[in-house]
Simulated assay, not measured.
Amino acid sequence: MMLLSSTEMLQKAKAQNYCISAFNVYTFEMLQGVIEAAQELRAPVIIQTSVGTVKQLGANYIVAHVRAAAEVNELPIALHLDHCSDFTIISDCIRAGYTSVMIDASHFSLEENISRTKQVVNFAQKYKVHVEAELGKIVGTEDNIIVSEKEMRLADPDECLEFVEATRVDSLAPAVGTAHGIYKQEPNIDFERIERIASMVSIPLVLHGGSGIPEAQVKRAISLGMSKMNIATEIRNVYSEALRNYFRQYEAENDPRRYLVPAREALKSKVKESIRMCGCDGKY
């Protein structure tokens, strides 16, 4: 099976009222763990990489690995570039074979965000690539994009409608009170805002900052219109902690084939939790 655009995947999730889990991976070993978890649960999945991961591993290498995973496992898999404000990087990833990209121009004015998003949409359409964009400002750190609590701004529903109509973007990530990273306290999600935005726009909505949101809140957000949820920090943390735990017991170990196994298994367990929470298990 070839890599898919996430458009069909998300439209199906929206129509059937479930959510696609989207996981940021930082190494090929993490990619393998996510794919194995999705395969075992028969779940469609979106693999995401940050700009930093693209620079670290290389877009062509990432595409080759994810394509191989899709073919071997016969799973619906989309490959997504997360939070990118650089058109050159976006276009390079699209040419390399990414099937979905996010243009993040949310730190600009609405007019500039629309302009930059339209540029990406016009380019991506030539390759039939899905485009996600963001409105409002989500607190936290995503690669080199840092938004403080003072800078956080929730998405305005009327602006969301104007933005979607002007850009013809495929999916929208509105700021609704979630945060990138691990929450210090229970997140204060504006569910009424989600419901209003979902009633005004026809495209799938994306919930950023999915790491650590209580299950009841995740399910409520999905019931109100969220069709995709991003998870990054949570799986990165369990993967890293499993490595630390291994070396506490076997500090002299130098064979990656040994110490990467428990890390991958810990990641798989957390990925399965997220897939089940989103309700996309058994959807393939």
Rank of each mutant, 00 (worst) to 15 (best):
D82A: 08
K118P: 06
G282M: 10
V129W: 00
P174H: 00
D82E: 09
D170S: 15
Q185Y: 12
E111M: 04
S148P: 14
I189Y: 09
G210P: 08
L161I: 00
Y284S: 03
L31C: 02
K184P: 05
K118D: 04
N144M: 13
T88C: 08
E186T: 15
L41Q: 05
C19F: 09
E273T: 10
V51K: 06
G140I: 12
Y239H: 13
A105V: 04
L79M: 06
E40Q: 13
D255H: 11
S240C: 11
L154G: 13
Y98R: 01
A59Y: 04
E142S: 14
V121H: 03
K150A: 14
M9F: 08
A173E: 06
A70G: 03
I275L: 11
N60E: 14
R276T: 01
P204A: 13
Q185T: 14
G209T: 09
P204R: 10
I77A: 02
N73T: 12
L10I: 09
S50F: 04
R116Y: 07
N254R: 14
Q11S: 15
N122L: 05
G210L: 09
T233E: 05
N245W: 03
Y183I: 11
D143E: 14
N60A: 06
N122P: 00
A166W: 10
D82M: 08
I182W: 03
L75S: 05
I47V: 08
Y259V: 11
I47C: 01
F28Q: 03
R236I: 07
I47Q: 02
Q217G: 10
G181Q: 11
V34L: 01
L81K: 02
A13D: 03
S171L: 10
G212W: 01
Q48P: 04
C278K: 10
I213A: 07
L135P: 06
A221T: 12
M30G: 00
L75A: 03
K283E: 09
C84L: 10
L207D: 07
H65A: 15
S50A: 10
R236V: 05
A175E: 04
Y259Q: 10
K128G: 00
Y284P: 07
V147E: 14
I194A: 07
S199W: 10
I103G: 05
M2E: 12
I77V: 04
S21Y: 01
M1P: 02
Q249E: 15
L161D: 01
K219P: 12
S202D: 11
L243V: 13
P256S: 07
I138A: 07
A15L: 15
V101M: 00
L31A: 06
S21P: 04
L4C: 01
A15W: 15
I90Y: 04
R42G: 05
P214A: 14
T167M: 12
H180A: 09
E253L: 07
R248D: 10
Q16N: 15
S21Q: 02
R67C: 11
V121P: 05
Y284N: 12
A232R: 01
V218G: 10
I145S: 14
R42H: 12
G225I: 10
V131H: 03
A232V: 02
V139G: 11
V101E: 00
